[in-house]
Design a protein around this nucleic acid. Structure first.
Lengths: 214, 214
DNA sequence: GAGCACTTGGCAGCAAGCTGCCACACTGGG
DNA sequence: CCCAGTGTGGCAGCTTGCTGCCAAGTGCTC
């Protein structure tokens, strides 16, 4: 195990690891800006290369989808065969696994550059891989996530969903929210349209599957 | 970072780490049988001691709940203030974090004893902790999981849930299942009772949150 | 065979949910 | 000022959902 500080040193000492990728590359990160320097990003991208019969998994937090440019980029790499999933977890620290032989973890940004820890310890790798796998399995496919992106609920929508999820009658829920029954039902109808549901059970099921209210 | 082989050596070289627990202990494991030797289990238990103002989190896979004795044990420790959650992930490798200062990972059982890797690398710990946190946040509280364990759906229950989730009216759903409306509604009422829901939305939400139909 | 427990299906009465319609209030722009 | 757009609330009419009740059918035990 060794540590390096800064992207340049990482590439110098561990760049060959990326180039020697054989079968599986897995990474988890908050967003696309893990590599603070564009040249480092390009260099790493070059070394990993295309999928080419290998499995490349990239797991991001929802923050990665904030900008449309990032979404477009993820769609592109997805089109190249990279498996992209979105986890509900913030994923504040980047984790990279190469062929389950090498584990690279990125620390925080620091004045002297970000510290990376590189290890080939099988026990460490197995442990981290099992945690990664748990997150991966629970994460949503990029397309599913984007399709399900419709229900970004504002405060009112969330309040309606909370009331619905409490099992209240419409009358009780409207009272709770301080609106008329007609208005409450209007909002329920809107939420159901957004969830593309024809019944309340179906709407609840979709909300639960999507992790709402998030 | 160092590795040890076997429980005895782990206790000899790292036992003090457990005893020095100050604020937070987190572990993830497939089940309760991580420590292959009862004496090792007891020794570790003694060293961690009670909660005593500290945060102790234990994350297990559903396999940990297979036996009623295991469930009873988890309820006991939960009653002592330990936070217990059940993840849908298999968690094949045990991970332990002590005060976010020490990371211990367990390898597979081997003839010479299981290999443990112990490290205090901040980058490693941060990376693993962020993955752990993602799994923890997505995991179900022990009580919720046990309470939610009710809906083991038989074929008929699953068919009802599928029909409900399709957004059909009761009449259309009954026709689809080849039963009368009264019978269908009777089964819906049973499913809702099992999900402890007072409305169809709430039932759907709970089903979605529980990952039904599994 | 009879008796019992359980399930199904039809029916009725009621509650809850759905939505159109209309009036009113508010806001912003010309 | 007027007008258009938007949102709210009350009401009515209708559909859907909920459940008790009763009769009939089925399977099991004695």
């Amino acid at each position: 195990m060794f540590s390096v500080r800064g992207d340049a040193e990482l590439i110098a000492r561990a760049g060959h690891l990326f180039a020697s990728l054989q079968s599986e590359f897995m990474c988890a990160a908050r967003d696309l800006d893990t590599w603070s320097r564009p040249e480092a990003k390009a260099a790493i991208g070059d070394r990993v290369g295309g999928v080419g019969g290998r499995t490349v998994r990239k797991l991001f937090s929802p923050v990665a989808l904030t900008e449309e440019s990032a979404r477009a980029h993820l769609r592109e790499v997805r089109d190249l065969g990279v498996l992209v999933r979105i986890s509900r977890s913030p994923l504040p620290h980047e984790v990279i696994l190469i062929d389950r032989r090498v584990l690279i973890l990125a620390g925080r940004d620091a004045p002297g550059g970000r510290e990376y820890t590189v290890t080939t310890s099988k026990t460490l790798i197995d442990g981290v891989e099992s945690l990664y796998r748990g997150l991966w399995d629970a994460a949503a496919d990029l397309d599913d996530y984007l399709r399900g992106d419709v229900p970004h609920l504002d405060e009112a929508g969330r309040a309606v969903l909370d009331a619905l999820g409490s099992g209240l009658t419409d009358e009780a829920a409207a009272r709770r929210l301080g609106v008329s029954l007609r208005t409450y039902r209007r909002r329920v109808a809107e939420l159901m349209a957004r969830l593309e549901a024809d019944s309340r059970f179906q709407a609840g099921l979709r909300a639960g599957e999507l992790g709402l209210p998030g």
